[in-house]
Design a binder for these strands. Structure first.
Lengths: 308, 308
DNA sequence: TCATGGTTATTGATTTTATCAATACAAATA
DNA sequence: TATTTGTATTGATAAAATCAATAACCATGA
């Protein structure tokens, strides 16, 4: 029993005439005759009555034809579904990602997208929050991936994951001896932070003890550099959870959990309010989440999230 | 796109392994590989990701597989439907038919049944009502076809059609000059009727004017004979509508409508109350009705029906 | 880095199937 | 009885599915 045979019996039922039905199927009448007989043999039922003029389906043939139509309908649905999916799952997306997220997400994201959505082309710009927001405004970017909430008029935020912060401490520091560090007990005197303009800098400022004045005068350009500075010069810094994977075993020993409360940043996809490719957004969100550990997607972390 | 290919992708999705899936489909792994690639080429989508281990469907592949399952389910439904229909539409039926119905129904009934329900074998006995009822009681017959209502305990009646009576009058009779004859104006003096035992005899008695005494002393064994008797000896008789088709053109001129009210007999299928093959009954009823003019199936005639 | 085992892809030969053109056959019509 | 209209049959051919063998790929542990 084949789809082709089903098309043939549906055609003969429609035209009540083998020759006309054969034409409509773009085959000869003999093909139709043979194939329908074959089907009748296989199912061991007579579908058509060739004695009556014009040819007509038997009672059971009518039921077979009607079910065959259901089958063919679902096949056509399948094909249409593919067309519509492909349409929605293809095209170029201009994505802006902030530097303190990019190194943890992008390398795998390209692979996942290429593998799962071969029709999608990512065109990524790594740049700081302010620049991403501006470019979204000007529609120079389709989507941004950055720390939120931002609350910018005309733009929408779609939270994707929540990332905890940890402290990276030089063995010389007094904090080093604690197993965990309470958020309120982090002096800013020996703190290294990113350059002005990185949103992570502001977040770090929020975490640390505001009573003490800032005295660390060196500002780094990337988390990697920050860590190296601490290694060389002592002091401490605050780094996002995902950076742990990039530390050596020796460096991991310098990491301390921050608690009470554990600071968390919310990372979201951002789009213009008039962005219409909802499906593309889902693809991005799904693909990013696929890269991350389950726990980081948990919305319950949101309550600890800090803003700029 | 073939059903076979759909089975293949469903199997690969199930086993996540080409070799195992191939086994389950009773083909080699190379066949599966080639066929699935062919399907992917035709649809121009990647259904599976062969890089991941174990092999896994792409997002669109998942949708395709799930729709393919729907199609395959439809096909299996079709096959099961055929099995169940064939079961219900086959077997032998012992049918009893009264003599004043048999000649009009049976010749075509055999043809219709053979053509539309090749699995059904009719075994027909032509005999009078009382004998049919008896044999139904003793389960020597499965179904009876006779004039109703009978109202016999343990038996069910399923009305199939309604047949008018007409008068067949010798040109010598005074009634012959009327275009139509009122039921009440039919004297029994010159009336020929069937032998005792034919239910039609009783029905005719009911139609005719009861005030006059019966004087016709000859009783015929069949409608055909009755008509010939009238042709040869004068007088008149009453015959069922379906007999008209058996008259010559000359004889048809001797036919007069009976009106006010037009007498009608109800013809029904009868079965034992415990008869279980409901489907077979429908087949018989449908096939009989297929033989008759539309008008005779009209239930509105029931109100004119006469009983024994 | 190199084998190794497990997995899928490729290939050429072979079998099976679908299709066609031509023609036979059957039924209805004139 | 011829004729027309329609379906079945048949033998040849083209297309396809399948197989066995083997290549290519890839993760993983030595």
């Amino acid at each position: 029993m084949t789809l082709q045979q089903m098309e043939y019996i549906v055609a003969v039922d429609k035209y009540r005439h083998f020759v006309k039905a054969a034409e409509s199927c773009h085959v000869t009448q003999s093909t139709l005759s043979v194939m329908i007989q074959k089907l009748e043999d296989e199912l061991d039922v007579q579908i058509f009555n060739r004695n009556s003029h014009p040819v007509s389906p038997t009672p059971i043939g009518e039921k077979i034809i009607s079910q065959a139509k259901v089958v063919l309908f679902n096949v056509s649905q399948l094909k249409e579904m593919i067309l519509s999916e492909r349409q929605q799952e293809s095209g170029e997306v201009k994505l802006g990602v902030i530097p303190t997220v990019a190194p943890y997400i992008l390398p795998k994201l390209f692979g996942v997208i290429a593998e799962r959505y071969p029709g999608v082309t990512l065109r990524v710009t790594e740049t700081r929050s302010a620049s991403i927001l501006e470019k979204l405004d000007k529609a120079e970017l389709d989507v941004g991936l950055l720390a939120t909430p931002v609350g910018r008029p005309g733009l929408l935020e779609i939270p994707v994951y929540y990332e905890k912060f940890v402290a990276y401490i030089s063995p010389g520091e007094s904090l080093y001896n604690r197993e965990e560090i309470e958020s309120g007990r982090m002096p800013t005197e020996r703190l290294w932070v990113l350059q002005e303009g990185h949103c992570l800098r502001n977040q770090v400022m929020n975490i640390c003890d505001q009573r003490s004045g800032y005295s660390s005068i060196y500002e780094a350009g990337s988390i990697d550099t920050l860590v190296k500075i601490v290694d060389e010069n002592g002091g401490y810094t605050i780094i996002p959870e995902l950076h742990l994977a990039m530390l050596t075993e020796a460096q991991k020993a310098h990491v301390r959990k921050i608690v009470d409360p554990a600071p968390v940043r919310e990372v979201s996809l951002m789009i213009r309010q008039d962005y219409v490719r909802e499906r593309m957004l889902n693809i991005l969100a799904e693909s990013i989440r696929r890269i991350l550990p389950e726990a980081m997607i948990d919305k319950r972390l949101k309550k600890f999230a800090i803003s700029l």
